[in-house]
Protein backbone atom coordinates (compact mmCIF):
# COMPACT_ATOMS: atom_id res chain seq x y z
CA UNK A 1 0.00 0.00 0.00
CA UNK A 2 2.76 2.36 0.97
CA UNK A 3 4.68 1.47 -2.18
CA UNK A 4 1.66 2.27 -4.31
CA UNK A 5 1.25 5.69 -2.78
CA UNK A 6 4.87 6.47 -3.45
CA UNK A 7 4.66 5.56 -7.13
CA UNK A 8 1.54 7.68 -7.41
CA UNK A 9 3.40 10.66 -6.07
CA UNK A 10 6.31 10.06 -8.38
CA UNK A 11 4.09 9.82 -11.44
CA UNK A 12 2.27 13.02 -10.57
CA UNK A 13 5.56 14.83 -10.05
CA UNK A 14 6.98 13.57 -13.33
CA UNK A 15 3.86 14.53 -15.28
CA UNK A 16 4.02 17.99 -13.81
CA UNK A 17 7.70 18.19 -14.62
CA UNK A 18 7.17 17.24 -18.24
CA UNK A 19 4.24 19.63 -18.54
CA UNK A 20 6.31 22.54 -17.31
CA UNK A 21 9.06 21.75 -19.79
CA UNK A 22 6.53 21.48 -22.61
CA UNK A 23 4.89 24.78 -21.75
CA UNK A 24 8.28 26.38 -21.54
CA UNK A 25 9.26 25.13 -24.97
CA UNK A 26 5.95 26.10 -26.56
CA UNK A 27 5.88 29.62 -25.21
CA UNK A 28 9.51 30.34 -25.98
CA UNK A 29 9.56 32.70 -28.89
CA UNK A 30 12.74 33.83 -30.43
CA UNK A 31 12.47 37.53 -31.13
CA UNK A 32 12.45 38.20 -34.85
CA UNK A 33 15.11 40.85 -34.68
CA UNK A 34 17.94 41.03 -32.24
CA UNK A 35 20.42 43.87 -31.99
CA UNK A 36 23.87 42.69 -32.79
CA UNK A 37 25.52 45.92 -31.80
CA UNK A 38 25.49 47.18 -28.25
CA UNK A 39 24.59 50.85 -27.86
CA UNK A 40 28.26 51.63 -27.22
CA UNK A 41 29.26 49.98 -30.49
CA UNK A 42 26.51 51.87 -32.25
CA UNK A 43 27.91 55.14 -30.92
CA UNK A 44 31.38 54.24 -32.11
CA UNK A 45 30.07 53.36 -35.54
CA UNK A 46 28.15 56.59 -35.81
CA UNK A 47 31.07 58.72 -34.70
CA UNK A 48 33.36 57.14 -37.28
CA UNK A 49 31.26 58.71 -40.06
CA UNK A 50 32.49 56.18 -42.63
CA UNK A 51 28.97 55.14 -43.56
CA UNK A 52 28.44 58.31 -45.53
CA UNK A 53 29.01 58.16 -49.23
CA UNK A 54 28.85 61.11 -51.58
CA UNK A 55 27.08 61.16 -54.91
CA UNK A 56 30.16 60.56 -57.00
CA UNK A 57 31.33 57.64 -54.90
CA UNK A 58 28.21 55.55 -55.28
CA UNK A 59 29.42 52.38 -56.98
CA UNK A 60 27.59 51.82 -60.22
CA UNK A 61 28.08 48.07 -60.25
CA UNK A 62 27.83 45.63 -57.38
CA UNK A 63 25.67 47.87 -55.30
CA UNK A 64 22.03 47.89 -54.45
CA UNK A 65 20.51 51.34 -54.27
CA UNK A 66 17.48 51.59 -52.04
CA UNK A 67 15.07 54.48 -52.01
CA UNK A 68 13.47 54.79 -48.59
CA UNK A 69 10.89 57.40 -49.56
CA UNK A 70 7.23 56.63 -50.06
CA UNK A 71 6.13 54.77 -53.23
CA UNK A 72 4.42 57.97 -54.36
CA UNK A 73 7.65 59.96 -54.23
CA UNK A 74 9.46 57.07 -55.82
CA UNK A 75 7.08 57.10 -58.77
CA UNK A 76 7.70 60.79 -59.29
CA UNK A 77 11.37 60.24 -59.75
CA UNK A 78 14.26 58.21 -58.42
CA UNK A 79 17.88 57.34 -59.02
CA UNK A 80 18.75 54.85 -61.69
CA UNK A 81 18.47 51.17 -60.72
CA UNK A 82 16.99 52.02 -57.35
CA UNK A 83 14.57 49.78 -55.51
CA UNK A 84 11.86 51.28 -53.36
CA UNK A 85 11.59 50.11 -49.76
CA UNK A 86 9.68 52.56 -47.66
CA UNK A 87 11.33 53.51 -44.37
CA UNK A 88 8.40 52.26 -42.32
CA UNK A 89 8.55 48.86 -43.97
CA UNK A 90 12.22 48.02 -43.80
CA UNK A 91 11.61 45.46 -41.07
CA UNK A 92 8.88 43.58 -42.93
CA UNK A 93 9.26 39.90 -43.63
CA UNK A 94 9.86 40.18 -47.37
CA UNK A 95 12.29 43.05 -46.98
CA UNK A 96 14.20 41.10 -44.36
CA UNK A 97 14.73 38.43 -47.01
CA UNK A 98 16.09 41.04 -49.40
CA UNK A 99 18.46 42.51 -46.83
CA UNK A 100 19.62 39.08 -45.73
CA UNK A 101 20.31 38.13 -49.30
CA UNK A 102 22.28 41.30 -49.96
CA UNK A 103 24.21 40.77 -46.78
CA UNK A 104 25.13 37.23 -47.72
CA UNK A 105 26.22 38.33 -51.17
CA UNK A 106 28.25 41.05 -49.49
CA UNK A 107 26.99 43.76 -51.80
CA UNK A 108 27.04 47.34 -50.65
CA UNK A 109 23.61 48.75 -50.01
CA UNK A 110 23.23 52.48 -50.49
CA UNK A 111 20.27 54.06 -48.78
CA UNK A 112 18.97 57.44 -49.79
CA UNK A 113 16.03 59.69 -49.06
CA UNK A 114 15.05 63.25 -49.83
CA UNK A 115 17.97 64.22 -47.59
CA UNK A 116 20.54 62.25 -45.62
CA UNK A 117 18.56 62.82 -42.45
CA UNK A 118 15.65 60.82 -43.75
CA UNK A 119 17.83 57.81 -44.41
CA UNK A 120 19.47 57.99 -41.00
CA UNK A 121 16.82 56.19 -38.96
CA UNK A 122 16.51 53.16 -41.29
CA UNK A 123 20.28 53.01 -41.57
CA UNK A 124 20.95 53.11 -37.85
CA UNK A 125 18.35 50.51 -37.04
CA UNK A 126 19.47 48.09 -39.74
CA UNK A 127 23.08 48.64 -38.79
CA UNK A 128 22.40 47.85 -35.17
CA UNK A 129 20.66 44.67 -36.29
CA UNK A 130 23.92 43.56 -37.82
CA UNK A 131 23.63 44.62 -41.46
CA UNK A 132 27.06 46.09 -41.82
CA UNK A 133 27.04 46.49 -45.59
CA UNK A 134 24.96 49.67 -45.55
CA UNK A 135 25.83 53.22 -46.54
CA UNK A 136 23.95 56.49 -46.65
CA UNK A 137 24.17 58.62 -49.76
CA UNK A 138 24.68 62.23 -48.73
CA UNK A 139 22.45 63.73 -51.33
CA UNK A 140 19.55 66.10 -51.40
CA UNK A 141 16.80 65.46 -53.90
CA UNK A 142 15.29 68.60 -55.31
CA UNK A 143 12.73 69.11 -58.01
CA UNK A 144 13.37 71.87 -60.44
CA UNK A 145 10.86 72.27 -63.19
CA UNK A 146 9.45 68.82 -62.46
CA UNK A 147 12.83 67.23 -62.90
CA UNK A 148 14.60 65.38 -60.16
CA UNK A 149 17.97 66.89 -59.38
CA UNK A 150 20.48 65.40 -56.98
CA UNK A 151 22.83 67.58 -55.05
CA UNK A 152 25.64 66.71 -52.74
CA UNK A 153 24.62 67.54 -49.20
CA UNK A 154 26.95 68.89 -46.57
CA UNK A 155 26.36 67.64 -43.10
CA UNK A 156 26.99 69.32 -39.81
CA UNK A 157 28.82 72.23 -41.29
CA UNK A 158 28.69 75.33 -39.17
CA UNK A 159 27.30 77.91 -41.52
CA UNK A 160 27.91 80.99 -39.48
CA UNK A 161 29.95 82.22 -36.58
CA UNK A 162 27.26 83.52 -34.27
CA UNK A 163 29.61 85.26 -31.87
CA UNK A 164 31.28 87.12 -34.68
CA UNK A 165 27.90 88.09 -36.04
CA UNK A 166 26.78 89.48 -32.70
CA UNK A 167 30.04 91.38 -32.26
CA UNK A 168 29.69 92.81 -35.73
CA UNK A 169 26.11 93.84 -35.09
CA UNK A 170 27.15 95.59 -31.89
CA UNK A 171 29.89 97.45 -33.69
CA UNK A 172 27.54 98.41 -36.44
CA UNK A 173 24.99 99.66 -33.97
CA UNK A 174 27.53 101.68 -32.00
CA UNK A 175 28.79 103.58 -34.98
CA UNK A 176 26.62 106.60 -35.17
CA UNK A 177 25.44 107.18 -38.56
CA UNK A 178 27.31 110.12 -39.82
CA UNK A 179 25.15 112.73 -41.33
CA UNK A 180 25.71 112.36 -44.94
CA UNK A 181 27.92 115.06 -46.24
CA UNK A 182 25.90 116.99 -48.59
CA UNK A 183 27.17 116.37 -51.98
CA UNK A 184 27.25 119.57 -53.84
CA UNK A 185 24.27 119.32 -55.98
CA UNK A 186 24.96 120.04 -59.54
CA UNK A 187 24.22 123.59 -60.31
CA UNK A 188 20.76 123.92 -61.40
CA UNK A 189 20.47 124.75 -64.88
CA UNK A 190 18.52 127.79 -65.21
CA UNK A 191 16.32 127.50 -68.06
CA UNK A 192 15.29 130.93 -68.93
CA UNK A 193 11.65 130.90 -69.39
CA UNK A 194 10.84 132.90 -72.28
CA UNK A 195 8.26 135.30 -71.35
CA UNK A 196 5.56 135.29 -73.69
CA UNK A 197 5.34 138.55 -75.21
CA UNK A 198 2.12 140.06 -74.50
CA UNK A 199 0.49 140.59 -77.67
CA UNK A 200 -1.67 143.49 -78.00
CA UNK A 201 -5.08 142.12 -77.48
CA UNK A 202 -6.50 141.44 -80.69
CA UNK A 203 -9.94 142.38 -81.17
CA UNK A 204 -12.48 139.69 -80.70
CA UNK A 205 -15.32 139.34 -82.80
Amino acid sequence: MKELEQTKRISIASVLFILIILIGLLTYKRPKYIYELTPQQAVENVVSDNFLISLNNIPTTDAAIIDIRSPFEFQKGHLENAINIQAAEILNEENKIIFDKLKNENTTVVLYGANPNEALAPYMILNQLGYTNLKIATINLIYTQNKLVTQNATLELSEADVNAFIAASLKKAMVKEKPKAKTPSPPKKVIPIKKKKKMPTEGGC
Binding site: P39, V43, L120, A121, M124, L155, E156, L157
Partner: peptide, 18 residues
Protein backbone atom coordinates in the same frame (compact mmCIF):
# COMPACT_ATOMS: atom_id res chain seq x y z
CA UNK B 1 21.11 69.91 -30.84
CA UNK B 2 24.12 70.15 -33.12
CA UNK B 3 25.03 72.27 -36.13
CA UNK B 4 22.56 70.47 -38.32
CA UNK B 5 20.16 67.98 -36.82
CA UNK B 6 22.08 64.98 -38.11
CA UNK B 7 24.28 64.32 -35.07
CA UNK B 8 21.43 65.17 -32.75
CA UNK B 9 19.28 62.58 -34.50
CA UNK B 10 22.00 59.98 -34.13
CA UNK B 11 22.16 60.66 -30.43
CA UNK B 12 18.38 60.63 -30.25
CA UNK B 13 18.08 57.22 -31.88
CA UNK B 14 20.67 55.62 -29.63
CA UNK B 15 19.13 57.10 -26.51
CA UNK B 16 15.69 56.01 -27.62
CA UNK B 17 16.85 52.47 -28.10
CA UNK B 18 17.74 52.57 -24.41
Amino acid sequence: FSNDHFYANEAWIICNRL
